[in-house]
């Protein structure tokens, strides 16, 4: 009898696995891009899982008083950032300490949050869900709420073979939706693929960008995933030590993650605390506002040598990173 089970069991699992592949959504790496950092073998993309992740992303059920969803501070139309808010607000009008970052090309990120507190995309959602200034909820309660909703029970059943509503499944589903947020069709990309050409301002801006900015905002992702300080005078009201909070190293004081510049035109205000409302203000900082510190990168000492014409050209280039197909992708919106 046992032998029969040993013959049947692998066959059964084998057939299940073969059919489970049917609705796979292959993840493709845009031409010329590096291999993603995310381990897809631990969470292969599948349509029903992505759909579940999308539903969770837009659902305030994740917050303690059912008022705030992920999308509250990460709106698709503004590059999954919170336009016009320097610091984002959570439930009961509580204000956090950081600007909500744009969510883009997360499959290539090796760490998450402005200070790199989170090392794996799957675990990222736990931070806003449990932060008292954001959703102020606990995972056991989120799971209990989801288990009580028949619509979610059936969506989890469609998405996962064991049909269970668990923390693991909710986190993996959120990851899958976020992994689909790929911006790779901006004018910049079309130019790289030979489908468009820069105008003269954009072209001069691109040259300036490569000389002054690209060592940290490295193409094609426009970030090198490192942590840097750029001489911003600390906001004394926030007591934010940046990366040092995570590593405990004084050399990491006031360092923050180098953000991607994709869709930068629409993700204002800028910096970890949203202190600059416009790209003009950002470039004024780089040319004239840098405050010295021991851990300031050498190339920023003395400021970047940019005149007004240079800044205009740089901004013209930065606007070629706006990807309308990304900002208005109907697949990103709830059904």
């Amino acid at each position: 009898m046992r032998k029969v089970i040993y013959l049947i069991l692998p066959a059964f699992i084998f057939l299940c696995s073969a059919f489970a592949q049917e609705s796979d959504t292959p993840f493709s790496v845009p031409a010329g891009w590096p291999e993603p950092a995310y381990d897809f073998s631990s969470n292969p993309l599948r349509k029903p899982v992505i759909e579940l992740g999308k539903a969770l992303f837009f659902d305030p059920v994740l917050s303690r008083d059912n008022t705030i969803s992920c999308a509250s501070c990460h709106l698709p139309q503004t590059g999954f950032s919170h336009t016009d808010h320097d610091l984002s607000h959570g439930i009961e009008n509580r204000i956090g300490t950081r600007n909500s970052p744009a969510l883009v090309n997360l499959a290539w990120s090796r760490s998450f949050m402005w200070d790199g507190a989170v090392h794996n995309l799957d675990m990222q959602a736990l931070a806003p869900i449990t932060n008292p200034d954001e959703m102020d909820e606990s995972m056991p309660k989120v799971i209990a709420k989801l288990q009580a909703l028949p619509a979610y029970r059936s969506q989890f059943a469609k998405a996962f073979a064991d049909s269970q509503v668990t923390g693991e499944h909710a986190l993996k589903a959120l990851s899958q939706y976020m992994l689909t947020l790929i911006s790779c069709r901006a004018k910049y990309d079309l130019v790289q693929n030979g489908e468009a050409v820069f105008n003269e301002y954009e072209q001069r801006g691109y040259s300036l960008f490569k000389r002054h900015c690209a060592s940290c905002h490295t193409e094609p992702l426009f970030t090198n995933n490192s942590f840097e300080t750029i001489g911003l005078p600390p906001d004394t009201s926030l007591h934010d030590t940046g990366r040092m909070k995570i590593t405990g190293k004084p050399a990491d004081l006031h360092k923050y993650k180098v953000p991607s510049l994709r869709n930068i035109e629409v993700t204002y205000p800028y910096m970890h605390d949203g202190r600059f409302k416009s790209l003009q203000m950002v470039l004024f900082h780089y040319s004239s506002g840098i405050e010295k510190s021991n851990n300031l990168p050498r190339r920023l000492k003395g400021g970047l040598p940019l005149n007004e014409e240079n800044k205009r050209d740089l901004i013209a280039f930065l606007k070629t990173l706006t990807d309308e197909t990304f900002l208005h992708n109907p697949n990103y919106l709830p059904n």
Binding site: D39, S42, D122, M123, L126, M139, P140, G167, E168, L171
Partner: peptide
Amino acid sequence: GGAKGGSLDAANGMY
């Protein structure tokens, strides 16, 4: 690694 289930589920409050 990424999200795990069972006793390693982040919903157990040990994360």
